[in-house]
Amino acid sequence: MISLGSYLAISFALFICGVAVMIARKNIIAILLGIELILNSAALNFVAYTKFVNNNIDGHIMSLFIIVIAACEAAVGLGIVIRFFQLRESVHVDDAAQLQN
């Protein structure tokens, strides 16, 4: 039951959900949710491969750094979203159409 194939299937499903959430939603924060899902599926793949194939802990180090970078990315991304909301009064993706203020 617990094998590389099943882990790949789960992270594949997570990846597909992440992509679908990013496309289906028009709210910027909801898109950031999708990004978190995709980062999780990538980290899960690393750990699965390091467990079933080469059996050392390099995969753990890689997904540890993925978690670190995902946290930083969420922090900065949400900071931008809040600043964008203060300027445009809405977090709708279509409002982010112009480059200037």
């Binding site: 899960l44 750990v47 540890l64 978690i67 969420a74």
Partner: peptide
């Protein structure tokens, strides 16, 4: 899932950083 394949430190990090931090940020 991390815990099942023996990545116990990663499971704890996932709980601390994601479930404790990123979700509250969201």
């Amino acid at each position: 899932l991390y815990a099942v394949i023996g990545a116990d430190f990663l499971a704890a990090t996932q709980m601390v950083v994601y479930a404790g931090g990123v979700v509250i940020l969201m």
